[in-house]
Lab assay of single mutants.
Amino acid sequence: MQIFVKTLTGKTITSEVEPSDTIENVKAKIQDKEGIPPDQQRLIFAGKQLEDGRTLSDYNIQKESTLHLVLR
């Protein structure tokens, strides 16, 4: 499924993921596309910071959901 990751600069990254993918996994995909190390990434969805060990389905993230990427 496709999800969108919006950066603070307003850029939107499209990523191909599975509901069973972990947040860590998603951060790795963002690193592949943007070159941002996962340890600098914080992903936010519905006002919550997403934890690395959890999966997209844990957070009820569905296709075409938009996550927000904040850098630390």
Results as ranks from 00 to 15, higher is better:
Thr7Arg: 08
Gln62Tyr: 09
Gln40Met: 12
Gln40Ser: 09
Glu34Ser: 14
Gln2Pro: 07
Gln31Asn: 10
Thr55Trp: 03
Pro38Thr: 15
Ser15Pro: 09
Ser15Asn: 08
Val17Met: 05
Ala46Val: 06
Glu51Ile: 09
Ser20Ile: 06
Glu18Ser: 14
Arg54Ala: 08
His68Asp: 07
Pro19Met: 09
Asp52Asn: 10
Glu16Tyr: 14
Thr14Lys: 09
Arg54Asp: 04
Gln31Met: 13
Gln62Ile: 12
Lys63Asn: 15
Phe4Asp: 02
Ser65His: 06
Gly53Thr: 10
Thr7Leu: 15
Ile44Glu: 08
Pro38His: 12
Ile30Leu: 08
Lys11Ala: 08
Asp58Glu: 11
Leu50Lys: 00
Asp52Leu: 05
Leu56Gln: 00
Ile44Arg: 05
Phe45Asn: 02
Gln31Thr: 09
Val70His: 09
Pro37Arg: 09
Ser57Leu: 11
Leu8Gln: 13
Lys29Val: 07
Ile13Cys: 04
Gln41Thr: 09
Val26Trp: 01
Ile13Gly: 01
Lys27Pro: 01
Ile36Asn: 03
Thr66Phe: 07
Ser65Arg: 03
Gln41Pro: 01
Asn60Val: 03
Asp39Met: 10
Asp32Lys: 13
Asn25Arg: 14
Arg42Glu: 12
Arg72Met: 13
Leu43Pro: 00
Gln41Lys: 03
Glu34Ala: 14
Gly53Met: 09
Ser15His: 13
Thr12Ser: 06
Asp39Leu: 09
Asp21Lys: 02
Leu67Arg: 00
Leu71Arg: 08
Ile13His: 04
Ile44Thr: 08
Phe4Cys: 04
Ser15Val: 15
Lys63Leu: 06
Gly35Tyr: 03
Ala28Cys: 08
Thr7Ile: 13
Asp58Ser: 14
Lys29Gln: 11
Glu64Asp: 14
Thr55Asp: 02
Met1Tyr: 14
Arg54Gln: 07
Thr66Pro: 02
Asp58Tyr: 15
Phe45Leu: 05
Gln2Val: 15
Ile23Asp: 01
Ser65Trp: 04
Asp52Trp: 04
Ile61Glu: 01
Leu8Trp: 15
Asp52Cys: 06
Thr66Val: 14
Gln49Gly: 06
Lys29Tyr: 10
Phe4Ile: 07
Pro19Phe: 07
Pro38Asp: 04
Ala28Met: 14
Ser15Cys: 15
Lys29Trp: 13
His68Gly: 04
Tyr59Gly: 00
Gln31Tyr: 15
Ala28Val: 11
Asn60Tyr: 06
Asn60Thr: 04
Glu18Val: 13
Leu69Cys: 02
Lys33Cys: 07
Gln31Trp: 15
Phe4Leu: 06
Asp32Ser: 12
Lys6Val: 14
Phe45Ile: 03
Ile13Trp: 12
Val17Pro: 01
Arg42Ser: 11
Arg72Pro: 10
Ile36Glu: 02
Glu51Gln: 10
Glu34Arg: 05
Asp32Val: 12
His68Trp: 15
Ile36Gly: 04
Gln49Lys: 09
Glu51Ala: 08
Glu64Arg: 08
Lys27Asn: 01
Thr66Glu: 06
Leu71Cys: 07
Gln40Cys: 12
Lys6Ile: 14
Ala28Arg: 15
Pro19Thr: 07
Gly35Ser: 05
Ile23Tyr: 00
Gly35Pro: 03
Ile30Arg: 00
Phe4Thr: 06
Asp39Glu: 13
Lys29Glu: 04
Asp58Pro: 00
Asp21Trp: 13
Pro38Asn: 08
Phe45Glu: 00
Leu56Asn: 02
Gln49Arg: 09
Gln31His: 14
Ile44Trp: 15
Val70Asn: 04
Asp39Gln: 11
Ile23Ser: 02
Gln41Glu: 02
Val17Thr: 03
Lys63Glu: 11
Glu51Gly: 04
Leu43Ser: 00
Ser57Met: 12
Asp21Asn: 06
Gln2Ala: 08
Ser65Gln: 08
Glu64Asn: 15
Lys6Phe: 07
Ser20Lys: 08
Phe45Ser: 02
Ala28Glu: 09
Ile13Tyr: 10
